[in-house]
């Protein structure tokens, strides 16, 4: 009886400690939640219509700073404002089967005042091939800069990074 009590107490303690760890508010957790929301908003359901696209663009406005800078690669073009970025997203036609975006392996480094942060993550894009309907997966590393503005974390810059350095790119 005593051993059972000890066991149940131990399991309960571990479970409570885990829940506190999971849900205790912190800037890192707020940033991860925010990025989770961004990934969900960027995901496109199958057969998404114009209304869905407009709604998505309107929602995305809240995730980016007005002067957000987005660079697809070291030598790629740079987008330097939220309006330009949202314009591009709005004009882009998603694949008919849609896609799901996830941010995984998210590593947050907070700035000194905890009002800015650097985030290193892998963006994972899953969908289906338009011709064969086979599942597809694409992934890209990215560095995000984020800042707290009016109580919310917003993305101030995004830079995609190459995992495998193509020979010749730095020679």
């Amino acid at each position: 009886m005593k051993i059972k009590l000890v066991f149940v107490s131990l399991v309960s303690f571990v479970a409570i400690a885990f829940l506190i760890y999971q849900w205790w508010p912190s800037p890192e957790r707020a940033i991860k939640n925010r990025l989770g929301g961004l990934a969900k908003t960027l995901s496109v359901p199958a057969n998404d219509g114009d209304l869905g696209r407009v709604t998505r663009v309107a929602e995305l406005r809240h995730y980016f700073a007005q002067d957000v800078r987005v660079r697809a690669g070291a030598s790629g073009p740079e987008i330097t404002s939220r309006d330009a970025l949202l314009g591009l997203i709005g004009a882009w036609t998603p694949p008919p089967g849609g896609w799901t975006i996830e941010f995984v392996d998210v590593q947050v480094t907070l700035g000194q005042q905890a009002t800015s942060a650097r985030v290193y993550l892998t963006a994972k894009v899953s969908g289906h091939d338009a011709r064969t309907s086979e599942p597809t997966l694409d992934a890209r590393e990215a560095n995000f800069s984020m800042a707290k503005q009016d109580g919310d974390w917003v993305v101030t810059s995004v830079e995609a990074a190459e995992t495998l350095q193509r020979p010749g790119s730095q020679d």
Binding site: D105, V106, Q107, L121, A139, R140, L164
Partner: peptide
């Protein structure tokens, strides 16, 4: 296996 930002997504080469 080659990691990206972490081990959740890996290249195999």
């Amino acid at each position: 296996a080659i990691r990206m930002a972490g081990p959740r997504v890996l290249y195999v080469k």
